[in-house]
Write a protein that binds this DNA or RNA. Structure first.
Length: 370
DNA sequence: GTAGGGTTAG
């Protein structure tokens, strides 16, 4: 059955008009189609397990991957598939699916699923959690006004902290930072308290877009409102300081968060490393990489290595570059092939054939040129 | 146990 349907799909694909008659392109596209179809089938199989359905990351990753590639029918396929499981009666599960449609920018599907909730979940909707998914979906679509005004009115619900946070995200993403910040006033007027999530998002957007002073204002506002910054809030501010090349202040802030008992995570270290890489400060880059390796609350990740490998090649030495590549080989996300090749080329320049071979072998790259 | 919150560079 499955074979027949995938054969049909292939046939349909062949019958579809092609813009590019180039046979090489056609074969590549067909391979890609088959690859994504495979992703869908695998995902459906995994969905059979309740343990899998409780996880959030694989859903997000699959939807992101498929929607980025423009395979919206595949997104629909895997999300509609979830309706057959008991989990669909759990409104939290269904709310997640709604948001996933939003993340794929499939608003119509998101709202339709929301409409179906009463009959799917066997419970009346609008328990505190459910109506937050449509605003979150609208935020993904950068529609702040609709998220915070039109939709709550339509659903006869009062916007809560999550609605506002979603709207803030949408406003920031469209560059309407003033609108985002002014939502804090509106929240205060309505007695809705912002929390660490609200501020981590706002701070991140402000600092990340180069609005350092506005970020600092928001940070002070957060303190005035008695909201305790968590690791992500601190990270946003550290990142803001790094962007402003205030490395000493950034380091001091990391020390402050440690003193408060907040454990720096990989993001924290990566931001500092990025700052010192941009400064060309070899000693501090080495220090913070060592600190990250020794940390009990963080570990190097792919972003660490993406930054460090080119820097090691250019400013430190091929030995460190090789060591970094080896250290990163065990990660699920791999370094780009071109980056690994740069390191192996450098090794060959120094006639270190065995090291180069070993490196390419680690990344299962052919080394016939060697 | 259950919502809304990060980066990379070519």
């Amino acid at each position: 059955m499955e074979k027949a349907s995938s054969a049909c799909r292939r046939l349909r694909h062949l019958l579809l008009p092609k813009r590019k008659p180039d046979s090489v392109v056609a074969v590549a596209t067909s391979n890609t189609q088959a690859k994504f179809q495979n992703v869908v089938e695998k995902f459906k199989k995994l969905s059979n397990s309740g343990g899998f359905r409780a996880q959030r990351a694989p859903y997000k990753a699959a939807v992101r991957r498929l929607s980025r590639a423009g395979h919206f029918s595949h997104v629909e396929d895997i999300l509609q598939h979830q309706k057959q499981y008991e989990s669909i009666k759990n409104e939290h599960f269904t709310a997640r699916l709604i948001h996933l449609y939003g993340q794929a920018k499939m608003l119509d599907h998101a709202l339709q699923l929301f409409d179906e909730m009463p009959k799917l979940t066997a419970r009346a909707p609008f328990s505190p959690s459910t109506p937050s998914s449509p605003p979150a979906s609208l935020a993904e679509l950068r529609q702040g006004d609709r998220a915070v005004r039109e939709l709550p009115a339509k659903l006869s619900i009062e916007p809560n902290a999550i609605t506002y946070t979603s709207a803030m995200k949408a406003f920031c993403k469209t560059g309407s930072f003033d609108d985002a910040v002014s939502l804090l006033d509106e929240m205060a007027a309505k007695g809705v308290g912002p929390d660490a999530v609200t501020f981590s998002l706002l701070l991140g957007e402000l600092y990340h877009s180069g609005r350092y002073l506005e970020g600092e204002n928001a940070w002070n506002l957060m303190r005035e409102k008695g909201v305790d910054p968590d690791v992500r809030c601190y990270n946003s501010r550290v990142q803001g300081m790094v962007s402003e090349k205030k490395m000493w202040e950034a380091v001091a802030l990391v020390r402050e968060m440690e003193q408060k008992g907040l454990r720096p995570n990989s993001y924290t270290y990566n931001v500092l490393i990025k700052g010192f890489v941009d400064e060309g400060n070899v000693e501090e880059v080495k220090n913070w990489y060592a600190a990250l390796q020794e940390s009990s609350s963080a570990a190097p990740d792919i972003f660490t290595y993406l930054r460090l490998v080119p820097f090691a090649l250019d400013c430190i030495g091929v030995d460190l570059a090789l060591e970094l590549c080896k250290n990163s080989a065990g990660l699920k996300k791999k370094l780009p092939v071109a980056m690994v090749r740069r390191v192996s080329d450098e090794l060959l320049k120094h006639s270190r054939v065995e090291d180069a071979k070993h490196l390419l072998h680690l990344y299962t790259l052919p080394h016939s040129q060697a």
